[in-house]
Design a protein around this nucleic acid. Structure first.
Length: 474
RNA sequence: GGCGUGGUGGCAGAGUGGUCUAAUGCGCGGGAUUGCAAAUCCCGUAUUUCGUCGGUUCGAAUCCGACCCACGCCUCCA
């Protein structure tokens, strides 16, 4: 028996590698900043969500349950504006895009968070937080009815992003004048007074009608579902400042307790060596890539192929590597399944309950160990293929532990393998294939090749195997 | 301007003092197999080389310095 293994990740706050352990000794409270639902999420968004998904899977597979909360931002400037442009109510509009987001997540095999709170559904909690902040002197109401957090009332401000308040004020001052009326340009909105262009998208509060500021929803909802202090908070690297900095300030000023203990930030994705942006036309959604013939599982593979702390250069030719890799893993999976005596396919939940110590993972123990080491997915993939190479050369050496090891690893990465069973071809295609088999038996190769082309034209590829053929969609 | 990250083979991407003549994948080249293919399998594929120039060290892709280059955040963009 080896020692139990603990996942360690890089923590932004301390800039060190930290073990991920539940403070309550039971399960890790994990909060992720979710999408703003006004359009399809793009692959950059998904890189972050998928890394968070892998993080959760690795924890659960190493024996630590996770309480995963991810919010839905369903009220802000963009959602309000876009819903009005569509002539829809805010609820109707955001419900549509929330559903679309869920569909994309499911296609790429993301585990759903146990709790997925929406900002609109938590207005009361947010108002309550503002009330406490006002009471404690950390917030003030401006003339227009907006409420701001007073940054200078929170001396620790800037710890996460390493921005000193002085720099912050200087840089902010250099900007154009703000439309709101706050005491210091570093201050940020907790409550935004209703404006005419918001239409009927406003709520009543003790400070007048309006809506909560963006940062506040994450503070209010994480506190509600995970408590004032919780284990891990995650998001894209760009959220470090100001979003997460502001969350810390308002939460800690309000509750007096340490907010998140660890901060997991995912570095941005690059496309063709450049930042993804609409103007460059390189802002892909899952649908865009599906239209180009890629499968969601391949997109997922492509998005985890780089370490989360480094820029990942996403390219279409690069994505093509996913298919042969997944197919190879599928063959290996089948081979090991057979070698293990055709056990029942272990479900994710069952694998989480299993003791996945290195001895139990066979040749895939180094791959899983790489994941525990700051989620080093590229290293894990390398170790996986190294093990695969050994097993392919010596199939007889395969053990049951190898099979379970591969299963654990694939589940940790959330990779769904392409089906290996031959898809049932239509009668018409089968008849052509039979005719071709006969032609080959008759050594009439001209006719045989003709039939092969005909089958291909109908969307199927025929492969010759010993004494017969196989058909697969082309 | 401030803060920060990174520059490794055709591409992607591990490796952070010696086991690196640098993992792994894709691609590419050769071979086996095949009537020819496809699929599959096997072999090879950076030949003191890891942006450049110096330095530290018995020893550096890995540490230090300078420089060049790319990129990110500082804008309610993951």
């Amino acid at each position: 028996m080896k020692e139990p293994q603990t996942l360690r990740i890089h923590d932004t706050l301390t800039d060190t590698l930290q073990p991920v352990l539940p403070a309550d000794g039971k399960r890790v409270g994990f909060y992720c900043c979710g999408p703003t639902v006004y359009a399809s999420a793009h692959i950059g968004n998904f890189r972050t969500f998928i890394v968070q998904d892998v993080f959760r899977r690795v924890l659960e597979l190493s024996g630590t349950p996770v309480k995963h909360v991810r919010n839905i931002t369903n009220v802000d400037d963009k959602t309000i504006k876009a819903s009005q442009d569509q002539g829809q109510s805010l609820n109707e509009f955001t419900a549509y895009w929330t559903e679309k987001f869920h569909a994309d997540c499911a296609a790429m095999n993301l585990l759903g968070p146990q709790i997925e709170p929406g900002a609109v559904e938590h207005i009361a909690e947010q108002i309550e937080m503002i009330r406490v902040l006002m009471e404690k002197g950390h917030a003030y109401r401006a003339e227009d009815g907006s409420v701001y957090f007073r940054v200078e009332s929170f001396p620790q401000y800037g710890r996460l992003s390493k921005v000193s308040e002085r720099e912050l004020t200087t840089t902010t001052t250099a900007r154009s004048e703000d439309e709101y009326d706050r005491d210091s340009l570093a201050d940020f909105a907790l409550w935004k007074a209703a404006k005419p262009e918001d239409g009927d998208n406003f709520w009543e509060s003790p400070w007048g009608s309006g809506r909560p500021g963006w940062h506040l929803e994450c503070s209010a909802m994480s506190t509600k579902y995970l408590g004032p202090g919780f284990d891990v908070h995650s998001g894209g690297i760009d959220l470090t400042f100001p979003h997460h900095e502001n969350e810390i300030a308002q939460s800690e000023a309000c509750t007096g307790e340490t907010f998140a203990r660890l901060w997991l930030h995912v570095v941005h994705l690059m496309v063709d060596g450049r930042k993804m942006s609409k103007s460059l036309g390189n802002m892909y959604t899952l649908d865009d890539l599906k239209a180009k013939g890629f499968l969601p599982a391949e997109v997922r593979y492509g998005l985890i192929a780089g370490h989360y702390r480094k820029h990942l250069n996403f390219t279409l030719p690069g994505l093509e590597a996913a298919r042969p890799n997944l197919q190879r893993l599928a063959r290996l999976d089948r081979q090991l399944h057979e070698a293990a005596g055709h056990p029942k396919l272990p479900k994710y939940a069952a694998l989480c309950k299993r003791d996945n110590n290195p001895d139990a993972l066979g040749r895939f123990a180094p791959a899983f160990a790489s994941l525990l080491d700051n989620l080093n997915v590229p290293k894990a993939l390398g170790e996986t293929f190294r093990a695969a190479g050994e097993l392919e050369k010596q199939p007889a050496a395969a053990t049951e532990a190898d099979y379970f090891g591969l299963r654990v690893l694939l589940e940790a990465l959330g990779l769904e393998l392409p089906p290996v069973e031959v898809e049932e071809a239509p009668e018409e295609i089968r008849a052509l294939a039979e005719a071709r088999l006969q032609a080959r038996a008759d050594k009439d190769f001209a006719k045989s090749d003709e039939l092969r082309d005909e089958i291909l034209a109908l969307g199927w590829r025929v492969k010759d195997v010993k004494g017969g053929y196989e058909l697969e969609p082309a």
